[in-house]
Nucleic acid binder design. Structure first.
Lengths: 223, 223
DNA sequence: CCAAAAGTGTTACAAGTACACCCATGA
DNA sequence: TCATGGGTGTACTTGTAACACTTTTGG
């Protein structure tokens, strides 16, 4: 039996949730869009395969990486019996230049909405749906949204991100108060350098170390 | 690369959380305690392997079964490169007579506390720890505790179960009110046939169909 | 000056918590 | 009849949701 990994890498740009897809250079599913991934080698663990393949195929190094699910349907790969361990990851797309290589003819950020409308190679559409559900659940109980944003961000950006991922509106002022009460966001003295019709918003950053400490002493993040 | 499955089957008896373990009949780890499990065959998916091996090795058929995590550490099995897809399951132990067979010299319900103190074959101790964390989280957000109890149960039994699994005390009266308000527990006219120092408690059952409907229309179980 | 976005405050209601208290049972 | 566990009620605290209001900015 052969074992592969697949990486569902989420990014957030232009107020939209994106996913990193490559064009397949070889058969099967040549020319179609698919997740970066590949065979788990004899002397590496699955997580290592994911980071290696991501670097090789797209030049991306992810901030947040978590195992998603292992897909074992018997006929999921036309090459034979191949199971895949799917991972999902979060990254700020502006950090990297996508460079396609090895098995990939190109690498691009595709809107999740569009990706779900079209066709993907293998069972990758099911995997994407599964990953999206996981992301939506996880972002409510763990402060992982920051891995999709720049180090410093405005409340408006965070708010938009949450509304986009969760697919529903959240009261702006209550969202802000809730986050501030947690005490894991640090205000800076800087104001965002963006064109706006109104007041210049403050920039915040996420105090990850403080959050880890609080979590250890029983604090539960919950948006 | 070879692929196995391992099943962490939880049960609840004598006010204690138990796990189903077998004695290993063959090398490696001959004579030690381990989870039921075995190789994924070429023409079956992992979930099928789990139910098949559980039936073969212990005569147990589980009510609730969910994939837990795939463990891929390179040296986790002395026989070579073998990754394992771990599942966890919930069952009411009183429903089955344990019958050990094939690879198992015996099958028994072991207190989770004891199992974590002792030594298990392979990396099964890590897997058990991982499964326990998952169970504790899951039982808060999904009404899966009922799969550990008989079809009809008293509030005291449910309350004890939750306190045992979560490892903390929960106010008896508030626990009851919260559950009743959900509307997923149906009171029967029967009273439990148990010796008690006080009042005879009513028996309830869990209305799974109603819960599924409510869940579809947006209801979130949360204890 | 005014529209738009950021930031702050207020109020009404729902939910959670901590108990007190009564009831039924069997030793 | 009394200790024990089951069952119910209530006051208090906390959290949530909705929205009004003020401030700052650029055109």
């Amino acid at each position: 039996m052969k074992v592969t990994v697949d990486a569902v890498v989420f990014g957030y740009t232009e107020d939209e949730l994106k996913v990193l897809l490559i064009g397949r250079k070889f058969q099967p599913f040549k020319g179609m869009l698919a997740f970066p991934g590949g065979y788990v080698l004899e002397n590496e663990r699955a997580r290592e395969t994911v980071t290696r393949e991501l670097k090789e195929e797209t030049n991306v190094e992810v901030d947040y990486l978590e195992q998603l699910y292992t897909f074992t349907k018997v006929d999921r790969d036309p090459r034979g019996r191949i199971i895949t361990i799917a991972y999902y990851a979060l990254v700020n797309p502006s950090k990297f230049n996508l460079i396609a290589d090895t098995d990939a003819s190109d690498a691009q950020w595709v809107s999740v909405k569009e990706a779900l409308k079209g066709t993907l190679a293998f069972d990758h559409k099911s995997i994407l749906e599964y990953a999206l559900v996981r992301l939506r659940n996880k972002i409510k109980y763990e402060p992982i949204g920051f891995d999709l944003l720049s180090d410093k961000f405005t409340f408006n950006q965070l708010h938009n991100l949450y509304e986009t991922v969760l697919g529903k509106t959240l009261d702006r002022t209550n969202f802000q108060k809730k986050f501030l009460k947690f005490g894991i966001l640090v205000p800076t003295k800087e104001k965002a350098d963006i064109v706006t019709a109104g007041k210049k918003p403050k920039l915040f950053y996420f105090d990850k170390k403080k959050y880890e400490k609080m979590k250890k002493s029983g604090f539960l993040f919950d948006i």
